[in-house]
Design a protein around this nucleic acid. Structure first.
Length: 311
RNA sequence: GGCGCCGUGGCCGAGUGGUUAGGCAGGGGCCUGCAAAGCCCCGUACUCCGGUUCGAAUCCGGACGGCGCCU
């Protein structure tokens, strides 16, 4: 992946393919530490719903990037890349092996193919701008984006709202179009080279695992977790709250939908997410070595260990 | 056995002589800081066999299947 000898391992794949377990097993063999590449497990108080590493796993191997943010704090690809860069240096400095594990492909990408160093943008102006943009019709936003940054706006087959707004924001707040920054600005971090493995599962088995996991999550306190987040005053539109299932569990708590129905809905959401992940890894991570995730974890860990040592 | 109603793509469901309904499910894809997010694309189906017609999923007849009622 990227140029140069790999400084660490990456274990990626769609949800519920067993990344966490494999990462821990590999870390034990290689004297490694794990860096969570997960935009939602990064939040505190969402352990159950995001299927974050459990206490035993956290104790067995040092983890970074897991459960360290409040639900209201934003977490972006750039944030991740900067932090991960630091964690990697720290781990490597101890003579240990960094193992990047998780399903947020874009975050990993921001590390191997760094995003540009973003100029500072006034937060209050930004908030104000966002408010205004939110009230715009998509076509309007698209129009502004095209005017402020025709280069960027012409790149995508279809300019969606999120990206149009981003282009407008950067152009207005930084004084330069997004495409300018992308082309000329310094990268946010030094590119990192990793040896990447992907966990793959046949569809039927994968679906069954997803389904089973959701049921387990319900049994191990997902509803209570959502209850606690609400009690803590976390608003429904907090950055962390659009994680798969949280809205559904909230509806369940309110008595709007039955348990079976909610589980069904979450399974369907998760499957859609898993598909997007698969597509991403398939196309965005070159030299990804696919692993048959139906194999026993220790067997896979041994395989990864061998590959790593041979590097 | 008789009478009536119905038979649309994986499912649901409009249409009723000549344009791709639509929804769900499923699949493929995009992605330079909201990424567990956001977004794009993909199915010519009408139970079967005859007939009427320039033309039928749509009309007529029959077969088969389902449902209901009757004897």
């Amino acid at each position: 992946m990227s140029t140069g000898p790999p400084v660490g391992l990456a274990i990626v794949g769609a949800t519920a393919t067993g990344k966490t377990g494999l990462a821990v097993a590999v870390a034990r063999r290689l004297n490694g530490e794990i860096i969570g590449v997960d935009s939602r497990q990064a939040y505190r108080g969402m352990e159950v719903g995001t299927a974050a590493p459990d206490a035993a796993e956290l104790e067995a191997v040092p983890h970074h990037g897991i459960g360290f943010l409040d639900a209201v704090q934003p977490y972006s690809a750039g944030d991740f890349a900067r932090r991960a860069g630091g964690w990697i240096r720290e781990i490597t400095g101890k003579g240990r092996v960094p193992i990047l594990a998780g399903g947020t492909g874009f975050f990993l990408h921001a590390l191997t193919h760094p995003v540009f160093a973003e100029p500072p943008m006034d937060p209050s102006r930004r908030a104000e701008l966002r408010g205004w943009l939110g009230s715009l019709a998509v076509e309007k936003a698209r129009g502004w984006s095209e005017r402020l940054d025709p280069v960027w706006s012409g790149k995508l087959a279809v300019l969606d709202r999120q990206r149009a707004e981003r282009a407008i924001e950067v152009a207005l707040l930084s004084g330069r179009p997004l495409s300018w920054w992308q082309e000329r600005a310094e990268p946010a971090v030094e590119p990192v080279s990793l040896m990447a493995f992907g966990m793959a599962l046949p569809p039927a088995i994968h679906r069954a695992r997803i389904r089973g996991r959701i049921e387990r999550q319900f049994e191990t306190g997902w509803p209570a977790e959502v209850e606690a987040l609400r009690a803590a005053g976390v608003p429904a539109d907090a950055p962390a709250m659009n994680a798969v299932g949280y809205r559904e569990v909230a509806a369940f708590l309110d008595g709007d939908t039955g348990r079976e129905q909610v589980i069904e809905a979450i399974a369907s959401q998760s499957w859609g997410y898993a598909r997007r992940q698969r597509t991403w890894f398939r196309h965005q991570v070159p030299d990804l070595r696919w692993l048959d995730a139906t194999e026993p974890i220790e067997h896979l860990a041994e395989l990864v260990e061998r590959e790593w040592r041979r590097r």
